[in-house]
Amino acid sequence: MRSTTPVQTASGDRPRLARHVRLRFDPARGQHVLLTPEAVTVLNGTGAAVLELCDGQRTVTGIVAELRGRYASVDDAEVRRFLDRLAARRCLELGDAEVGRA
């Protein structure tokens, strides 16, 4: 049994990696990985690009816009689902400076 609460990121959220989470490039596998005490998540190129933009400054909208500048096709809903999943696993914190969040 595991208590992962579904989380929905809002456009104004400013996600950043939780403090105990590390994003690293793994030369042995030639891929980026997300490290937590209990899991290793191997990321594809886009996943890593999204997380590198999660700096606690950019909003979700901002992140998607930035990605659109870099990649031909960026699916907004897909990026959000990816962020939702990581937030539910508490890998991401969803700070929002202006509005605040319960």
């Binding site: 049994m1 595991r2 208590s3 992962t4 609460t5 508490r90």
Partner: peptide
């Protein structure tokens, strides 16, 4: 024990992650 853990999952949602290994 399972009853207690189930209730705790609800109550602590979003605050503390509770992992119960059977």
């Amino acid at each position: 024990a399972q009853g207690v853990v189930r209730a705790a999952h609800e109550r602590l949602q979003g605050r503390m992650e509770v992992i119960y290994v059977l």
